[in-house]
Design a protein around this nucleic acid. Structure first.
Lengths: 189, 189
DNA sequence: CGTTAGTAGTTAGCATCCTAACTATCAGCT
DNA sequence: AGCTGATAGTTAGGATGCTAACTACTAACG
């Protein structure tokens, strides 16, 4: 449960009081921010514990899903679509949002546990290809239903209308954060 | 950026398609779940990078805030309220939602960097007390304004009405996840 | 008083995460 | 052909997270 944030969020009155000392503190913004992380952490943690009970972590699950989705879209798109799925460590790292060094470690343990297989790329000897093993595909078929059930159970408290509103607000917040992140790091010119 | 989730979330059509194979998959629930983690990750990451630029991590920040808040509520509540602030490693671990072992490591590095001070409890020789140093208090006074500015900037895309709705939905989701988590682990009896 | 159970903190070992530096390879330019 | 720069992957070392086991102490019970 990586995020590690106060389990007991400060009460709104405390935020109001602190705002007197720090003019930059916007109480309703801080409340929304803290509650966003809190809810996300709780939902994530529930899933992470289920994954752990099945012997995988969030990082490993992401990699497996990417490889699996890559396989399927390739199949669905027909043979012409060649390699649309990300299959090199670097493309997996990009898609997961981690560094290549981290992906090396993830693939190491996945390969050790028999979920993926590394093979050198014949065309470019710098590159490797990563493939799911049958064991991993069987694992996903067994695991995914429980994963989806948990997701559904968490969101079962929201009506379809509420879910639409929820997603709309989340997208707004996410895009704003992404915009701010890009603005604060204009480096990659 | 711990959470590590697909940077490109699957499109809604893909979820619909996958739902044909997995009856347990509720597309709108999955979309809301993924977007929740995605938005949270983006907002968190923005803040984490700011923290890193100031030389601290989310875990360290949580500890500092808890100790600082403990000090202030103690002051605000008057001398009678004694030690309402969590000041032992175990209480800090509880409040942060990490294990005591993790808190030991956090306090180790915080103490090494001069932000906190450990002292044995005179009454119970098993216990330690953890205190902020003046250096940490000065750091917080300097850092917090930038922290609050980032939070405000992220949420500036939501109106006050939207923030209320947002928080309401987040609380619903969080409480549901907490309920499910408690139900799936009735162990601590 | 002494055994026993519980609690506080630490330690050890593992899995992820990062940055920085390194090796090997490719690709372009002279 | 040969240098130069970019790219793919790995390695090394640090910081956080976890569980499990350990030490030291307190408390409770007979």
């Amino acid at each position: 449960m990586p995020y590690l944030l106060l389990k007991d969020l400060p009460r709104y009155e405390c935020l109001l009081e602190a705002a007197r000392e720090f003019p930059d503190l916007d109480p309703s913004a801080a409340e929304a921010f803290l509650q966003l992380l809190r809810a996300s952490d709780e939902a994530y943690g529930l899933n992470a514990r289920n994954m752990a009970a099945h012997g995988i972590s969030a990082g490993r699950f992401s990699v497996l899903m990417l490889l699996w989705r890559g396989d399927r879209t390739r199949c669905a798109a027909g043979p012409a679509a060649g390699d649309c799925g990300p299959r090199t460590p670097a493309s997996l790292a990009d898609a997961c949002g981690v560094t290549r060094a981290t992906m090396t470690g993830l693939i190491d343990t996945l390969e050790r546990d028999g979920f993926v297989k590394r093979e050198p790329d014949p065309a470019d000897r710098r590159m490797m290809t990563v493939q799911l093993t049958p064991k991993a595909e069987e694992f996903l078929r067994r695991y995914l239903p429980t994963h989806f059930r948990i997701t559904s159970a968490i969101m079962s408290v929201l009506s379809e209308t509420e879910r639409k509103t929820f997603v709309r607000l989340l997208v707004k917040v996410q895009q704003q954060a992404a915009t701010l992140a890009a603005a604060s790091r204009p480096a990659p010119s």
